[in-house]
Computed example of a mutant assay.
Amino acid sequence: MAKYKLAIFDWDGTILDSIGTIVNSVHGAAKDLNLPILDDQTVKNIIGLRLDTAIGQLYPELSQEELRIFLENYTKHFHFLEKVAPNLYPNVLETLQKLREENILLAVATGKSRVGLDRILNMLGLSDFFDATRCADETAGKPDPKMLHELLTQFGLTNKEAIMVGDASFDLQMANNANIDCIAVSYGAQPTSSLKNYSPKYIIDQFNELINHLITPQELF
């Protein structure tokens, strides 16, 4: 028996192995503007926020025009790198299919833009795979809980019937703000020492561990 009716997933760093692409795109855009190259973990710590918000935090000295140029350059770098090999993390597709077999609704709540998410879903052949998706440019960005509230409303569910899965503090804080249970993944952008501060029910090292946490054992046999 499924323990939740709706599983909501972050995208970058949770489902898609894209952390390196994001970090290198930020570095490339910074180099284009002769800005200092920040260490990788500093960049990883803002993954999950809306892109303009994230870059504004990394480089608060940028004017609005400089920020616009930075975002344009970031997008160019990201599109180039994304074409090389966008990969799901191990066991993601098989695990999601297992959850669907148990009638668990699947949704994505991401800091990506709608154009960006739809592009990568299409590249991976997953355009129709999820029951719903929410992007930061069409609602409030993380850690505001609005996108989670919208998903609950869409499916007519309560906060106790859904769970959020993510790799960043923004994901877990958003779940906390919506009073929704959450699970952290250890293989994404932020260290588990940071994620523990947001009281996830579990911290998993492999995506397929979700099966044990979202489906009661008797349903596996």
Rank of each mutant, 00 (worst) to 15 (best):
N179M: 13
E101G: 15
F78C: 05
K146W: 02
L88T: 04
D17E: 10
T139K: 01
D39R: 15
I180E: 07
G56Y: 04
E219G: 06
P60R: 03
K44F: 09
I215K: 00
Q97C: 12
N103P: 02
Q190N: 13
I46G: 06
Y4T: 04
I120P: 01
I120C: 10
L152S: 02
L172Y: 10
I15F: 09
A30E: 08
S113A: 01
E150D: 13
L172P: 10
S113I: 01
C135R: 04
K76E: 13
T133N: 11
H213W: 15
T133Q: 10
E82H: 11
I203W: 07
G28D: 11
K146L: 12
L33A: 03
K112E: 03
E150M: 01
T139F: 02
F129M: 12
L214H: 09
P217C: 04
H27Q: 15
F9M: 11
R50N: 07
H213S: 07
L210P: 07
E101L: 09
V115Y: 14
N91W: 05
K3F: 09
N176A: 12
A107W: 08
A184T: 07
I8Q: 03
G20K: 02
L49I: 02
S18A: 05
P145C: 00
K201P: 03
L93T: 03
P36M: 11
L117V: 04
I55P: 01
E150K: 00
N24K: 14
F129V: 10
L214I: 11
N91Q: 15
H27F: 11
M174A: 04
E65Q: 15
A7V: 13
L157P: 06
N197T: 09
P200C: 10
K112Q: 01
S194F: 11
A175M: 12
G20L: 04
S127R: 15
D181V: 03
L35P: 05
P90M: 04
G111C: 04
R100Y: 10
A136D: 00
A168Q: 13
D181F: 01
N24R: 12
G28E: 06
M164S: 07
S194W: 08
K146S: 04
D144C: 00
G111Q: 06
L58T: 08
L105V: 05
A109W: 06
Q173Y: 05
I22V: 14
H213C: 11
T192W: 06
G111L: 07
A107V: 08
V108M: 07
K44S: 14
N91E: 15
K112M: 01
R119F: 09
N122V: 05
L16I: 01
N159S: 15
S18F: 02
S63H: 00
V92Q: 03
D40G: 03
K201T: 07
I47Q: 06
F207D: 07
D118A: 10
N159Q: 15
